[in-house]
Nucleic acid binder design. Structure first.
Lengths: 334, 334
DNA sequence: TTGTAGGCGTTATCAT
DNA sequence: ATGATAACGCCTACAA
């Protein structure tokens, strides 16, 4: 499996390999005749340019990295789609890396991605510990956070306003007459979770509703976690009339638990999620949720990244997207 | 953003850069003292080895490519998870590429992946035109097909027996008393589809059931397609009592269409899918389907690939996995 | 144990 | 228009 190089072609064409390089790249001036001849030859010989050798000298690889915490949550594939499409449109490719919510893997991937000298990195961080990412952005390669709003200011990010999302959801539940609203979150430390939690608590406070600590539970952004925590919640004394789930897949677990418990959604308990993953709109599911522009998030991240790459601009770019309440059939007034 | 190289470290440590290389790689023998000193220095200076330079000389990049047709279908993320985990365990990383069912993109990615000199490629092909993939396998880089059984023999693949899967599903429906069974497939040309279709038709033939051509429809492996085709099917005169869907997401669309049409699943029409994606087991969905070992498929693909990479074995490896009927609540006897 | 030097496949800068 | 040749950052004989 010896691959053919520019030198092989040069030999076959009886020219210097510099000429071959020129013929193939098309940058420098070269006679049309030899250009055609060489290109034809290259094709015949099955030549594929060695991008890594090229990258070594040009210092750019035309590839981006996208680090996600959970490829299994439909939220991320949709963002990834946006990342990829936008990258492709601009002649870039993307390295999709999945951390399975493991910080260690995130660090490994970051290192590996930089080792491969990707031109930029989009990342939905796994935890709130983002020092390695910030450090990389400052010294090595442009980084933009996707669907995540870092606590520190001088980072690039494009995110949907999580605080506002939670406000909208909580206000909606309140308007429906609910007063006993529980919150089943994902990872407690996660930024997304913090903003959503705060949006929720602030709204309740504003309406003078006391927060029962037993109504706030944290686990992971996973269906299983939502299921488990809801079971615990229901077994305890005071059953809420509504549950705000940390995201849609948690919501799916929440609903599962409620129904297994013998209660009905929405007749006994209303449920609202976040994200609006495609399965939320299934006839069978019809989950009321707060939409997040996933595809757009991915696209914008890449746009920001390419901008940074192009002009080396170090000033942080922030893009806040608007959430949107999608009312379906998992909520009911009381 | 000038990155620090082995030479910078050499200068700082006042040694030759070969020494630094040795200290860092750990292969050659070197005094413990200088090794420690240099490693410490490297860390302090924020050195990240340039994998592309390294790859240029070592001829291997410790990275694999995984080309999928639709990252948005939960089937593929699950396979990807297996691919990734197995790759990681063995010190490899994976480049996940999404073609959105576009042959052109598949070709581009293949070229790009090879350009980056990945050590091997796992691919779930987008269409039945796999000549470019086969050619690559023969001349450039080991390729193994995932969840796909090529028509030609000398390719590597790991797949679930699609023919058998369809047999199982059709037999089940038959046992339930169904005689009017429609098939709503994905891309007609796709190999997967062909095997499933054949399994279905063979079983019906075996039981002397005549096949109405209007009962066989093809589109894409997408929810929307299943929805659309089912609408067409139901509008036509002779409504079937059961529908075999090309895969689970098609099945979801099928169910949606049936219910919108005012009919009930499973009381009026039974539905069975393929794959057993995670959402199929949702309480609200409870889709009867034929399970495919997705994660295992991914793992095995990588194992096969690594084997090929290690010993350069050119003999094709075939692995057939066993499907399994998962009975839930979308089928009913008549 | 350490240093020197050649080479990996390109691009780019000189000459010619 | 084309040919030498020096990088790019790293590895690895071969020497010392």
């Amino acid at each position: 499996m010896m691959s053919v190089t520019i030198k092989d072609i040069a030999k076959a064409a009886n020219v210097s390999y510099a000429t071959v390089s020129r013929a193939l790249s098309g940058h420098s001036e070269i006679s049309d005749k030899t250009k055609k001849k060489i290109r034809k030859l290259a094709k015949e010989m099955g030549y594929t340019p060695n991008a890594i050798a090229k990258g070594l000298v040009t210092k750019n690889t035309k590839t981006l990295g996208f680090i996600v915490p959970d490829i299994t949550n439909p939220f991320f594939p949709e963002v990834a789609q946006g990342v990829e499409d936008c990258a492709n449109r601009n002649g870039y490719q993307v390295f999709l890396c999945n951390t399975s919510w493991k910080l260690e893997k995130e660090k490994q991937y970051l290192k590996a991605l930089y080792g491969k000298r990707v031109d930029g990195i989009v990342v939905s961080p796994t935890s709130n510990d983002i020092t390695h990412l910030v450090e990389a952005d400052r010294n090595k390669v442009p980084v933009v956070f996707a669907a995540y709003r870092p606590a520190i200011a001088d980072c690039n990010f494009v995110a949907t306003d999580d605080y506002k999302s939670a406000e909208i959801a909580a206000e909606y539940l309140l308007k429906l007459g609910h007063r006993k609203i529980a919150y089943i979150g994902g990872q407690q430390e996660s930024c997304t979770n913090k903003y959503r939690l705060k949006g929720y608590t602030d709204v309740l406070k504003k309406h003078d509703i006391s927060l029962s600590p037993s109504y706030i539970k944290h686990g992971a952004f996973r269906q299983q976690s939502g299921y488990q925590l809801t079971k615990e919640l229901l077994i305890a004394n005071d059953v809420p009339t509504a549950i705000l789930a940390g995201n849609d897949i948690i919501a799916l677990g929440v609903i599962q638990a409620i129904e297994e418990f013998g209660l009905d959604v929405p007749n006994n308990i209303s449920v609202v999620g976040f994200d609006d993953i495609s399965f939320a709109s299934l006839d069978k599911v019809q989950l009321t949720t707060v939409f997040q522009p996933k595809y757009t998030t991915g696209e914008l991240c890449v746009e920001v990244l390419l901008q940074k790459i192009k002009d080396g601009d170090q000033n942080p770019t922030h893009k806040m997207l608007e959430p949107e309440l999608v009312i379906r059939r998992t909520c009911k007034g009381i």
